[in-house]
Amino acid sequence: MAEGSSNNANVDTSRSERAVWLMKCPPVVSRSLSSSSASDSLRPVAKVIVSLDPLLANDDDDSPPQFTMELAGTESGNAPKCYSMDMSQDFIPMAVFSESSQGRTAVEGKILNKFDMKPHNENIQNYGKLCRERTSKYMTKSRQIQVIDNDNGSHMRPMPGMVIASAVSDKKKMPTKGSDMKRTRRDRGEMEEILFKLFERQPNWTLRQLIQETDQPEQFLKDLLKDLCVYNNKGTNQGTYELKPEYKRSGEESTPK
């Protein structure tokens, strides 16, 4: 591949050695950054604070710098403004690609550091309120009223001789429960709210129970649980999942100061 070539068939690699940070952030942070940058391109949307311990040697690998992000603005009153950024350098090497409107592909850089964001300890209480608000919003069903033109109800009543045939036909078409039935994946954000609601009902769930409650594909559910929960390998709750401490209700984990 020719470096810096203008041919659409080649990949522009002139910026392939540029260091890039990869940041995995919650949806509320992504929406806040997008709305802030769209409203005013000259205002900073967030700032990153790097904390170093001056008493430790600069080459001490056991004490890496601590990263914290503070948002300039948020979309909700309960949305946290401060987030911890857990840095990880132990990952498969990756690169960032882009594609222009003309269809030209370019390498924008290689991933140097990977960050996973989570609400800062001082914002756990507000984040818990935000999660409960979103859960209530997703769990509330919107009802609609539809006017039926044919109000005599004749189209709603089965004709004589059709009841048995219809019942037999439906019985044959009914899919069997289990692996034969294809489950449709919900939106990730919606599933997170449903899981938070379920863990408010009871603190511990097995994977099989959660699949029955949510009717979601097993692997998709495992990926969500890996981010939100811890798995109990032993003890009285062996074989069950429970929420990570930062996602639990603040009232259950700490007493008011």
Rank of each mutant, 00 (worst) to 15 (best):
S142D: 11
H120A: 02
G178Q: 11
N123G: 04
M174T: 10
D149Y: 13
G178T: 06
T140E: 12
M139A: 03
M181N: 12
V147T: 04
R132N: 01
M159E: 14
T140C: 09
H120K: 03
E122M: 08
S166C: 15
V147Q: 00
H155D: 15
R134P: 00
R132K: 07
K141Q: 11
K118S: 02
A167S: 06
K118W: 01
Q125Y: 04
M181W: 08
R143E: 04
Q144M: 10
R143F: 00
M174H: 09
D149P: 03
E122N: 06
M159N: 06
E190H: 14
D187E: 10
M174L: 10
S154V: 11
P160A: 11
N123S: 10
S136Q: 04
N150V: 12
D180F: 07
I148H: 08
S169W: 09
S142K: 09
A167Q: 06
M162Y: 07
N152M: 13
I124D: 00
I164P: 13
R183H: 10
A167H: 07
K177F: 08
K177I: 13
T140L: 12
V168G: 14
S142T: 13
Y138R: 07
D180E: 05
K118Y: 01
M162T: 14
V147K: 01
K141S: 11
S136N: 05
M159I: 09
R132H: 03
D149A: 14
T176F: 09
R185V: 07
P160M: 11
R188T: 15
M156I: 05
T184A: 14
S154R: 03
T184S: 13
K182I: 03
I145P: 08
H155F: 02
P175R: 08
G189P: 05
T140Y: 01
G128K: 04
A167D: 10
S142I: 03
Q146N: 03
I124S: 04
G128H: 00
R143L: 06
G189N: 13
M162I: 13
P158N: 08
R157M: 11
Q125C: 01
R134K: 15
M181F: 06
Q146Y: 10
I124T: 03
R134A: 02
